[in-house]
Amino acid sequence: MKALARKRAIHVMLVYTGGCNGCDIEVAAAVYSPIHDLEQYNVMLTWNPREADILLVTGPVTKKIAPALKEIYDAIPEPKVVAAVGACAINGNVYKNLGGDLGPSSEIAGPVENIIPVHARVPGCPPRPEDIITAAAAAIKILSERSD
């Protein structure tokens, strides 16, 4: 019963941590575009951490946002799953790995896994809406297999 309810009603929260916004637009396209329509898989978008099960994080985490990200993560009740969407969230992408004479950016607090634990990763710059839907499906599977 627990697994069935967890599989059939999922709330996703999107958190943007200072990236270029391309991944956010693709997530918005995955949710709000009738062609992709994430809601048909019983995944509903919410903006309230108290209501969320899956946290989608986009963007390389800037130092200013890092404490806020941690607080939002703590505010989500268990069981929760974090999905890092896009190359910035996975390894910092161009901001942390490319640089000229002065080196890469010093304003990045690192990829998401430096701050909160990550369970699913969606590569791409930005990932296509189909990839984001696949990631949501994978996260649902992780959620429904948790026994607590």
């Binding site: 990236g19 200013k64 000229g100 002065l102 950016s105």
Partner: peptide, 22 residues
């Protein structure tokens, strides 16, 4: 200011075609 990534500073000293990625 939350989304500040220091891009102009990163681009200092990069060749143009490589800087285009950023």
């Amino acid at each position: 200011d939350p989304a500040y990534r220091g891009i102009e500073r990163m681009l200092q000293g990069m060749p143009v075609d490589k800087a285009n990625i950023i």
